[in-house]
Computed example of a mutant assay.
Amino acid sequence: MKLELDELDRRILHALQRDASQTNQQLAAAVHASPPTCLRRVRRLVEEGVIARQVALLDPERLSAALTAIVEITLDRQGDEEQQAFEEIVAQEAAVQQCYRVSPGPDFVLVVLVADMPAYHGLAHRLFASQKNVRNVRSYFSIRRSKFETAVPLESVHMP
């Protein structure tokens, strides 16, 4: 069932996507609602799974994780069991930031964040070369990140 969001819900979500560290008082002032109303709405959005979690976004370059790779993976056997098995292996690797099953083309696209090429080589050996079902790996290395957003666009969300 798709959740319907009203204008206040959307303002709250926009504000939290910009800065989830603000207090309920600050959030209420920013979205022009009373603090109790704002708190009630945020709790509902959390309970209904719209707000999945709140995290701190770190700058990887300040933490020596400066190499981003976009990796296409094609499996030899593409059955559901084989794809789930690959996803379970990838989920255990902290350097894999994102994993997508895609179609058409490769079976998976991964976003990987590592310190350098030797670290990528080690990861590639663990995740790809040592897996019998991985047929093809194609890696692209980021030269510069010109845009990075975490906010989900709310403009297309249905209003009641």
Rank of each mutant, 00 (worst) to 15 (best):
M1V: 14
L3I: 15
L3N: 10
E7W: 01
E7C: 00
L8I: 13
L8Y: 01
D9R: 02
R11D: 12
I12A: 06
H14N: 13
Q17H: 04
D19V: 09
A20K: 05
L27T: 00
A28D: 11
A28F: 03
V31F: 07
H32M: 11
V42N: 03
R44I: 02
V46A: 07
E48H: 12
V50N: 04
V50P: 05
I51P: 04
Q54K: 13
L57F: 04
L58V: 14
D59E: 13
E61A: 14
E61M: 04
L67W: 01
T68P: 00
T68R: 11
A69E: 09
A69S: 11
A69G: 04
V71T: 11
I73C: 06
T74V: 08
Q78D: 15
E82F: 04
I89A: 10
C99A: 15
Y100F: 14
Y100A: 07
S103Q: 08
D107T: 15
F108C: 09
V109S: 05
V109A: 08
V109F: 05
L113C: 11
A115N: 01
D116M: 05
A119Y: 00
L123W: 06
A124I: 05
A124D: 10
H125I: 14
H125C: 10
L127N: 03
A129K: 05
N133C: 10
V134K: 04
N136E: 15
F141G: 00
S146W: 06
F148C: 11
P153F: 11
V157P: 00
V157Q: 08
